[in-house]
Computed example of a mutant assay.
Amino acid sequence: MCRWLAYTGNPIQLETVLFREEHSLIDQSLHSRYGATTTNGDGFGVGWYGRHNELPFRYRCAHPAWSDRNLRDAARAIHTPLFVAHIRAATDTPSQETNSHPFRHGRWLFVHNGSIRDYPNVRRELMLAVKPELFASIEGSTDSEVMFFLALTLGLDHEPVPALERMAAMIEDIGWRNGVKNPLNMTVCATDGEQIIAVRYSSERVSRSLFHSTSFRHLHELYPDDPRIQMVGDDAFLVLSEPLVDLPGVWEEVPENTAIIVRGANVYQRPFEPH
Protein backbone atom coordinates (compact mmCIF):
# COMPACT_ATOMS: atom_id res chain seq x y z
CA MET A 1 0.00 0.00 0.00
CA CYS A 2 1.89 3.09 1.29
CA ARG A 3 4.42 4.14 3.94
CA TRP A 4 4.37 7.32 6.00
CA LEU A 5 5.90 8.99 9.04
CA ALA A 6 5.31 12.03 11.23
CA TYR A 7 7.89 13.80 13.41
CA THR A 8 7.76 16.42 16.15
CA GLY A 9 10.70 17.62 18.26
CA ASN A 10 13.76 19.80 17.81
CA PRO A 11 14.05 21.20 14.27
CA ILE A 12 15.88 18.67 12.09
CA GLN A 13 16.66 18.29 8.41
CA LEU A 14 14.07 16.29 6.48
CA GLU A 15 17.05 14.44 5.04
CA THR A 16 17.60 12.79 8.43
CA VAL A 17 14.63 10.45 8.12
CA LEU A 18 14.08 10.55 4.37
CA PHE A 19 17.60 9.52 3.31
CA ARG A 20 20.16 8.98 6.06
CA GLU A 21 18.82 6.12 8.16
CA GLU A 22 19.36 2.47 7.33
CA HIS A 23 15.67 1.94 6.63
CA SER A 24 14.84 5.52 5.66
CA LEU A 25 11.62 6.38 3.89
CA ILE A 26 13.49 6.35 0.57
CA ASP A 27 14.79 2.86 1.37
CA GLN A 28 11.20 1.82 2.20
CA SER A 29 10.03 3.11 -1.18
CA LEU A 30 12.17 0.35 -2.72
CA HIS A 31 12.42 -2.28 0.03
CA SER A 32 9.52 -2.06 2.45
CA ARG A 33 9.75 -4.79 5.10
CA TYR A 34 6.31 -4.43 6.70
CA GLY A 35 4.10 -3.18 3.89
CA ALA A 36 1.51 -4.94 1.77
CA THR A 37 3.77 -4.12 -1.21
CA THR A 38 7.58 -4.10 -1.27
CA THR A 39 7.83 -1.14 -3.65
CA ASN A 40 6.07 2.18 -3.11
CA GLY A 41 6.83 4.15 -6.26
CA ASP A 42 3.57 5.83 -7.27
CA GLY A 43 4.34 9.29 -5.95
CA PHE A 44 5.42 10.91 -2.71
CA GLY A 45 5.01 14.04 -0.68
CA VAL A 46 6.26 15.93 2.35
CA GLY A 47 4.48 18.57 4.39
CA TRP A 48 6.05 20.78 7.04
CA TYR A 49 5.48 23.80 9.25
CA GLY A 50 7.59 26.93 9.58
CA ARG A 51 6.93 29.84 11.93
CA HIS A 52 4.02 29.87 14.36
CA ASN A 53 0.64 30.50 12.68
CA GLU A 54 2.15 29.96 9.24
CA LEU A 55 0.22 27.64 6.94
CA PRO A 56 1.97 24.36 6.15
CA PHE A 57 4.16 23.87 3.10
CA ARG A 58 4.06 20.90 0.75
CA TYR A 59 6.20 19.29 -1.90
CA ARG A 60 4.45 16.54 -3.87
CA CYS A 61 5.32 14.59 -6.97
CA ALA A 62 3.78 11.73 -8.97
CA HIS A 63 7.18 10.12 -9.66
CA PRO A 64 9.03 7.64 -7.43
CA ALA A 65 10.72 9.29 -4.47
CA TRP A 66 14.03 7.52 -5.14
CA SER A 67 14.46 9.22 -8.54
CA ASP A 68 13.72 12.83 -7.56
CA ARG A 69 16.92 14.90 -7.32
CA ASN A 70 15.02 17.97 -6.15
CA LEU A 71 13.72 16.07 -3.14
CA ARG A 72 17.26 15.35 -1.95
CA ASP A 73 18.21 19.04 -2.17
CA ALA A 74 14.98 20.16 -0.51
CA ALA A 75 15.33 17.58 2.26
CA ARG A 76 18.83 18.86 3.05
CA ALA A 77 17.72 22.51 3.08
CA ILE A 78 14.54 22.27 5.15
CA HIS A 79 14.82 22.30 8.96
CA THR A 80 11.52 21.99 10.78
CA PRO A 81 10.15 20.89 14.16
CA LEU A 82 7.09 19.12 12.73
CA PHE A 83 6.56 17.35 9.43
CA VAL A 84 4.90 14.42 7.70
CA ALA A 85 6.15 12.40 4.73
CA HIS A 86 4.44 9.79 2.55
CA ILE A 87 5.36 7.38 -0.23
CA ARG A 88 2.51 5.92 -2.26
CA ALA A 89 1.61 2.57 -3.76
CA ALA A 90 -1.53 3.20 -5.82
CA THR A 91 -4.61 0.98 -5.65
CA ASP A 92 -7.78 2.06 -7.50
CA THR A 93 -6.67 5.54 -8.60
CA PRO A 94 -3.91 6.82 -10.92
CA SER A 95 -0.47 8.11 -10.08
CA GLN A 96 -0.70 11.89 -10.34
CA GLU A 97 0.39 14.84 -8.22
CA THR A 98 -3.10 15.58 -6.88
CA ASN A 99 -3.31 11.99 -5.59
CA SER A 100 -0.01 12.24 -3.71
CA HIS A 101 -0.15 12.74 0.04
CA PRO A 102 -0.15 14.77 2.25
CA PHE A 103 -3.50 16.38 1.56
CA ARG A 104 -3.91 19.90 2.91
CA HIS A 105 -6.75 22.18 3.98
CA GLY A 106 -6.05 25.29 6.01
CA ARG A 107 -3.59 24.32 8.73
CA TRP A 108 -4.31 20.59 8.43
CA LEU A 109 -2.18 17.95 6.73
CA PHE A 110 -3.40 14.36 6.31
CA VAL A 111 -1.78 11.08 5.22
CA HIS A 112 -3.22 7.57 4.95
CA ASN A 113 -2.09 4.00 4.40
CA GLY A 114 -4.74 1.39 3.62
CA SER A 115 -7.95 1.51 1.62
CA ILE A 116 -11.69 1.87 1.48
CA ARG A 117 -12.60 -1.46 -0.01
CA ASP A 118 -14.71 -1.51 -3.19
CA TYR A 119 -14.19 2.25 -3.30
CA PRO A 120 -15.51 2.81 -6.86
CA ASN A 121 -18.93 1.50 -5.77
CA VAL A 122 -19.21 3.61 -2.60
CA ARG A 123 -17.35 6.70 -3.81
CA ARG A 124 -20.39 8.70 -4.90
CA GLU A 125 -22.22 8.28 -1.60
CA LEU A 126 -19.12 9.15 0.41
CA MET A 127 -18.36 12.25 -1.65
CA LEU A 128 -21.93 13.52 -1.30
CA ALA A 129 -21.48 13.41 2.48
CA VAL A 130 -18.73 16.07 2.27
CA LYS A 131 -19.90 19.58 3.19
CA PRO A 132 -20.68 21.63 0.06
CA GLU A 133 -18.31 24.40 1.16
CA LEU A 134 -15.46 21.85 1.39
CA PHE A 135 -16.29 19.86 -1.74
CA ALA A 136 -14.63 22.28 -4.16
CA SER A 137 -11.29 21.81 -2.38
CA ILE A 138 -11.04 18.12 -3.33
CA GLU A 139 -8.40 17.98 -6.06
CA GLY A 140 -7.70 14.30 -6.69
CA SER A 141 -9.53 10.98 -6.99
CA THR A 142 -8.26 8.94 -4.03
CA ASP A 143 -10.24 7.39 -1.21
CA SER A 144 -7.66 8.94 1.16
CA GLU A 145 -8.52 12.52 0.22
CA VAL A 146 -12.25 11.84 0.61
CA MET A 147 -11.52 10.40 4.08
CA PHE A 148 -9.76 13.66 4.97
CA PHE A 149 -12.63 15.86 3.81
CA LEU A 150 -15.16 13.65 5.56
CA ALA A 151 -13.16 14.12 8.78
CA LEU A 152 -13.17 17.89 8.23
CA THR A 153 -16.92 17.74 7.61
CA LEU A 154 -17.41 15.82 10.85
CA GLY A 155 -15.46 18.17 13.13
CA LEU A 156 -11.71 17.64 12.70
CA ASP A 157 -11.03 21.29 13.57
CA HIS A 158 -12.73 21.04 16.97
CA GLU A 159 -12.39 17.44 18.20
CA PRO A 160 -9.95 15.51 16.01
CA VAL A 161 -10.22 11.98 17.40
CA PRO A 162 -14.04 11.92 17.60
CA ALA A 163 -14.17 13.36 14.07
CA LEU A 164 -11.95 10.54 12.80
CA GLU A 165 -14.13 8.03 14.67
CA ARG A 166 -17.24 9.46 13.01
CA MET A 167 -15.49 9.36 9.62
CA ALA A 168 -14.58 5.69 10.07
CA ALA A 169 -18.10 4.84 11.22
CA MET A 170 -19.65 6.54 8.19
CA ILE A 171 -17.38 4.66 5.78
CA GLU A 172 -18.20 1.36 7.47
CA ASP A 173 -21.94 2.07 7.48
CA ILE A 174 -22.00 3.00 3.78
CA GLY A 175 -19.80 0.03 2.92
CA TRP A 176 -21.93 -2.48 4.84
CA ARG A 177 -25.13 -1.13 3.30
CA ASN A 178 -23.57 -1.71 -0.14
CA GLY A 179 -22.53 -5.27 0.63
CA VAL A 180 -18.83 -4.57 1.31
CA LYS A 181 -17.23 -6.88 3.84
CA ASN A 182 -14.65 -5.15 6.09
CA PRO A 183 -15.01 -1.76 4.39
CA LEU A 184 -12.07 0.10 5.98
CA ASN A 185 -8.39 -0.49 6.65
CA MET A 186 -6.31 2.48 7.72
CA THR A 187 -3.43 3.99 9.49
CA VAL A 188 -3.86 7.76 9.29
CA CYS A 189 -2.15 10.87 10.56
CA ALA A 190 -3.64 14.35 10.84
CA THR A 191 -1.75 17.39 12.10
CA ASP A 192 -2.45 21.11 12.37
CA GLY A 193 1.10 22.05 13.35
CA GLU A 194 0.25 22.06 17.06
CA GLN A 195 -0.64 18.39 17.51
CA ILE A 196 -0.28 15.06 15.75
CA ILE A 197 -3.13 12.56 15.76
CA ALA A 198 -2.29 9.07 14.49
CA VAL A 199 -4.72 6.14 14.28
CA ARG A 200 -4.40 2.43 13.58
CA TYR A 201 -7.76 0.82 12.78
CA SER A 202 -9.43 -1.67 10.44
CA SER A 203 -12.88 -3.22 10.18
CA GLU A 204 -11.37 -6.72 10.34
CA ARG A 205 -9.01 -5.82 13.22
CA VAL A 206 -5.96 -6.71 11.11
CA SER A 207 -4.52 -3.27 10.36
CA ARG A 208 -1.49 -2.04 8.45
CA SER A 209 1.71 -1.75 10.46
CA LEU A 210 2.29 1.30 12.67
CA PHE A 211 5.00 2.05 15.25
CA HIS A 212 6.02 4.91 17.48
CA SER A 213 9.26 5.91 19.14
CA THR A 214 9.82 5.27 22.82
CA SER A 215 11.01 7.97 25.25
CA PHE A 216 14.01 9.80 23.82
CA ARG A 217 15.15 10.58 27.37
CA HIS A 218 15.44 6.83 27.87
CA LEU A 219 17.14 6.41 24.50
CA HIS A 220 19.75 9.02 25.43
CA GLU A 221 20.66 6.82 28.39
CA LEU A 222 20.78 3.67 26.27
CA TYR A 223 22.75 5.25 23.41
CA PRO A 224 24.60 8.30 24.84
CA ASP A 225 27.02 8.51 21.91
CA ASP A 226 24.52 8.20 19.07
CA PRO A 227 24.34 11.64 17.34
CA ARG A 228 21.03 10.81 15.66
CA ILE A 229 19.33 10.47 19.03
CA GLN A 230 21.12 13.51 20.52
CA MET A 231 19.99 15.95 17.81
CA VAL A 232 16.24 15.47 18.20
CA GLY A 233 16.01 16.37 21.90
CA ASP A 234 14.32 14.71 24.87
CA ASP A 235 10.76 15.43 23.78
CA ALA A 236 10.96 14.22 20.18
CA PHE A 237 8.38 11.75 18.89
CA LEU A 238 8.05 9.71 15.71
CA VAL A 239 5.06 7.71 14.52
CA LEU A 240 5.67 5.72 11.37
CA SER A 241 4.68 2.76 9.23
CA GLU A 242 7.90 0.89 9.90
CA PRO A 243 11.08 1.44 11.94
CA LEU A 244 13.96 3.48 10.53
CA VAL A 245 16.75 1.71 12.44
CA ASP A 246 17.21 -1.68 14.09
CA LEU A 247 18.11 -0.55 17.61
CA PRO A 248 16.62 -2.42 20.59
CA GLY A 249 14.22 -0.40 22.69
CA VAL A 250 13.63 2.36 20.13
CA TRP A 251 10.21 1.37 18.76
CA GLU A 252 6.88 0.11 20.02
CA GLU A 253 4.06 -1.19 17.86
CA VAL A 254 0.83 0.79 18.06
CA PRO A 255 -1.97 -1.55 19.23
CA GLU A 256 -4.98 -2.29 17.05
CA ASN A 257 -7.86 0.20 17.30
CA THR A 258 -5.74 2.89 18.96
CA ALA A 259 -5.40 6.65 18.58
CA ILE A 260 -2.24 8.53 19.60
CA ILE A 261 -2.39 12.25 20.38
CA VAL A 262 0.88 14.19 20.60
CA ARG A 263 1.01 17.79 21.85
CA GLY A 264 4.57 18.90 22.48
CA ALA A 265 6.09 16.66 25.13
CA ASN A 266 2.70 15.14 26.02
CA VAL A 267 1.74 11.84 24.37
CA TYR A 268 -1.57 10.11 25.00
CA GLN A 269 -3.10 6.86 23.78
CA ARG A 270 -6.78 6.03 23.78
CA PRO A 271 -9.03 3.40 22.21
CA PHE A 272 -10.31 4.25 18.75
CA GLU A 273 -14.01 3.40 18.57
CA PRO A 274 -15.95 4.42 15.43
CA HIS A 275 -19.46 5.58 16.27
Rank of each mutant, 00 (worst) to 15 (best):
L152P: 10
H23E: 09
R3V: 07
I196M: 03
P64R: 03
R123G: 00
S67E: 15
F57Q: 15
L55I: 15
R107Q: 13
F272Y: 11
L247Q: 14
R200N: 06
E165Q: 12
H79E: 11
S29C: 12
S209C: 05
R20A: 13
A136K: 14
H86D: 05
A90E: 07
F83C: 04
L210I: 04
G114D: 10
P64I: 05
F110G: 07
A265Q: 08
D173A: 13
P248M: 07
S29G: 09
C189Q: 04
T258P: 00
G249V: 03
A129D: 03
H23M: 02
P248N: 11
P227Y: 02
K131G: 11
G264K: 13
I261R: 15
Q96T: 09
I229K: 01
G50S: 10
E159F: 04
C189E: 09
L134D: 04
E133N: 15
G43K: 05
L134T: 09
G35Q: 07
R208F: 09
G50D: 06
R20G: 00
L71C: 04
S203H: 01
P64F: 03
T258A: 15
L109N: 13
D27Y: 14
E172L: 06
V239Q: 10
G50V: 00
D118I: 02
D27F: 14
I138H: 03
D92Y: 15
R124D: 03
D157M: 12
P255S: 08
I26T: 15
A77K: 12
L164F: 01
P120W: 07
A198N: 08
P94W: 09
T38Q: 12
P120A: 10
P271H: 03
E97Q: 10
P81G: 09
G175E: 01
V111F: 09
I261F: 11
F83G: 01
M1A: 11
L247F: 07
D246R: 14
P224R: 11
L164R: 12
L30D: 11
W4G: 04
L240M: 14
M186Y: 04
I26C: 10
R88A: 02
M167S: 10
